[in-house]
Amino acid sequence: TTVEVQGVEYRFDNPEEAEKFAKKMAKSLNLRVELHGNKWRVE
């Protein structure tokens, strides 16, 4: 599972970890998070 934060990609073996990371990043950067296939995008 991939998390893309403002163009930078982070890879996770565990989808739940990816989701937690994406939501945490979105909250700290005041952005929103969307799931596209198996990629979380924070923008």
Rank of each mutant, 00 (worst) to 15 (best):
T1Y: 15
T1N: 11
T1R: 09
T1L: 11
T1I: 12
T1G: 07
T1V: 11
T1M: 13
T1D: 07
T1W: 15
T1P: 11
T2D: 04
T2M: 12
T2K: 07
T2F: 14
T2P: 04
T2V: 14
T2I: 15
T2H: 08
V3Y: 01
V3A: 02
V3M: 01
V3F: 02
V3K: 00
V3D: 01
V3S: 00
V3I: 02
E4M: 11
E4Y: 12
E4Q: 10
E4P: 00
E4V: 14
E4K: 05
E4D: 12
E4S: 13
E4T: 11
E4G: 04
V5E: 01
V5M: 08
V5P: 00
V5K: 01
V5H: 06
V5Y: 08
V5L: 12
V5I: 11
V5T: 02
V5F: 09
Q6G: 10
Q6T: 06
Q6L: 15
Q6P: 01
Q6H: 12
Q6S: 09
Q6K: 09
Q6R: 11
G7H: 05
G7T: 02
G7V: 01
G7A: 03
G7I: 02
G7K: 04
G7L: 03
G7F: 03
G7E: 03
G7W: 03
G7P: 00
V8H: 09
V8G: 03
V8Y: 09
V8Q: 09
V8N: 06
V8M: 10
V8I: 11
V8W: 06
V8R: 11
V8E: 07
E9C: 15
E9Y: 06
E9P: 06
E9N: 07
E9D: 07
E9G: 04
E9M: 09
E9Q: 08
E9K: 06
E9H: 08
Y10K: 03
Y10E: 01
Y10P: 00
Y10I: 05
Y10C: 14
Y10A: 02
Y10R: 03
R11K: 13
R11P: 06
R11C: 15
R11T: 12
R11N: 10
R11Y: 14
F12R: 00
F12W: 02
F12N: 00
F12D: 00
F12Q: 01
F12A: 00
F12I: 01
F12K: 01
F12L: 02
F12E: 00
F12C: 14
D13F: 07
D13L: 08
D13Q: 10
D13S: 10
D13K: 09
N14R: 09
N14I: 08
N14S: 12
N14W: 07
N14H: 09
N14G: 06
N14Y: 09
N14C: 15
N14L: 09
N14K: 08
P15S: 09
P15A: 12
P15V: 07
P15T: 06
P15K: 07
P15E: 07
P15I: 06
P15H: 06
P15R: 07
P15C: 15
E16N: 09
E16L: 12
E16D: 13
E16G: 10
E16R: 09
E16C: 15
E16H: 12
E16F: 11
E16Y: 11
E16Q: 11
E17Y: 06
E17N: 06
E17P: 02
E17D: 12
E17T: 08
A18M: 01
A18P: 00
A18Y: 01
A18N: 00
A18S: 02
A18Q: 00
E19Q: 06
E19D: 04
E19K: 07
E19S: 05
E19A: 08
E19W: 09
E19I: 06
E19L: 09
E19P: 00
E19M: 08
E19N: 03
K20C: 15
K20H: 11
K20F: 11
K20A: 12
K20N: 11
K20L: 13
K20I: 13
K20P: 01
K20D: 12
K20E: 13
K20Q: 13
K20S: 12
K20Y: 11
K20W: 12
F21P: 00
F21L: 02
F21V: 02
F21N: 00
F21I: 02
F21Y: 06
F21D: 00
F21H: 02
F21R: 00
F21K: 00
F21E: 01
F21G: 00
A22F: 02
A22D: 01
A22W: 02
A22Q: 01
A22L: 03
A22R: 01
A22G: 02
A22C: 06
A22I: 04
A22M: 02
A22N: 00
A22T: 01
K23V: 09
K23I: 11
K23P: 00
K23F: 10
K23A: 06
K23G: 04
K23H: 13
K23L: 11
K23W: 09
K24L: 12
K24Q: 13
K24R: 12
K24N: 12
K24M: 13
K24H: 14
M25D: 00
M25G: 01
M25N: 03
M25A: 07
M25S: 04
M25V: 10
A26L: 02
A26M: 03
A26S: 05
A26F: 02
A26Q: 02
A26K: 01
A26E: 03
A26H: 01
K27M: 11
K27V: 10
K27H: 11
K27Q: 12
K27F: 07
K27S: 11
K27N: 10
K27Y: 08
K27W: 06
K27P: 01
K27G: 08
K27E: 13
S28D: 14
S28M: 14
S28N: 11
S28Q: 14
S28P: 02
S28L: 15
S28A: 14
S28F: 13
L29Q: 05
L29G: 05
L29V: 03
L29I: 02
L29D: 03
L29R: 04
L29M: 07
L29F: 05
L29N: 04
L29E: 04
L29T: 03
L29K: 05
L29Y: 04
L29W: 03
N30Q: 07
N30V: 04
N30Y: 04
N30I: 03
N30G: 14
N30L: 05
N30F: 04
N30A: 05
N30P: 01
L31R: 04
L31I: 06
L31V: 09
L31C: 15
L31S: 07
L31E: 04
L31M: 13
L31Q: 05
L31D: 02
L31T: 07
L31Y: 06
L31W: 05
R32C: 15
R32L: 11
R32T: 13
R32G: 10
R32D: 08
R32H: 14
R32P: 11
R32A: 11
R32Q: 12
V33L: 13
V33M: 12
V33N: 02
V33G: 03
V33D: 02
V33R: 02
V33P: 08
V33Q: 02
V33T: 06
V33H: 04
E34I: 12
E34S: 14
E34D: 07
E34A: 10
E34W: 10
E34R: 11
E34N: 09
E34Q: 11
E34M: 09
L35A: 07
L35K: 14
L35V: 09
L35G: 04
L35T: 05
L35E: 04
L35Y: 14
L35P: 03
L35S: 05
L35I: 07
L35R: 12
L35D: 02
H36C: 15
H36I: 14
H36E: 10
H36S: 11
H36F: 08
H36Q: 10
H36A: 10
H36Y: 08
G37Q: 05
G37H: 05
G37V: 03
G37T: 03
G37L: 05
G37M: 05
G37P: 02
G37W: 02
N38M: 05
N38Q: 05
N38C: 15
N38V: 04
N38F: 04
N38I: 04
N38T: 06
N38L: 05
N38S: 07
N38W: 03
N38D: 12
N38E: 08
K39D: 07
K39M: 08
K39P: 00
K39Y: 07
K39R: 14
K39F: 05
K39W: 05
K39T: 12
W40R: 03
W40S: 04
W40K: 03
W40A: 03
W40Y: 08
W40L: 08
W40M: 05
W40Q: 04
W40N: 03
R41E: 12
R41T: 14
R41P: 03
R41W: 14
R41C: 15
R41H: 13
R41K: 12
R41A: 07
R41L: 15
R41Q: 13
R41N: 06
V42L: 07
V42I: 07
V42T: 05
V42Q: 03
V42K: 01
V42P: 05
V42N: 02
V42S: 04
V42R: 00
V42E: 06
E43F: 15
E43Y: 15
E43C: 15
E43G: 15
E43R: 09
E43H: 11
E43Q: 10
E43T: 14
E43D: 13
E43N: 12
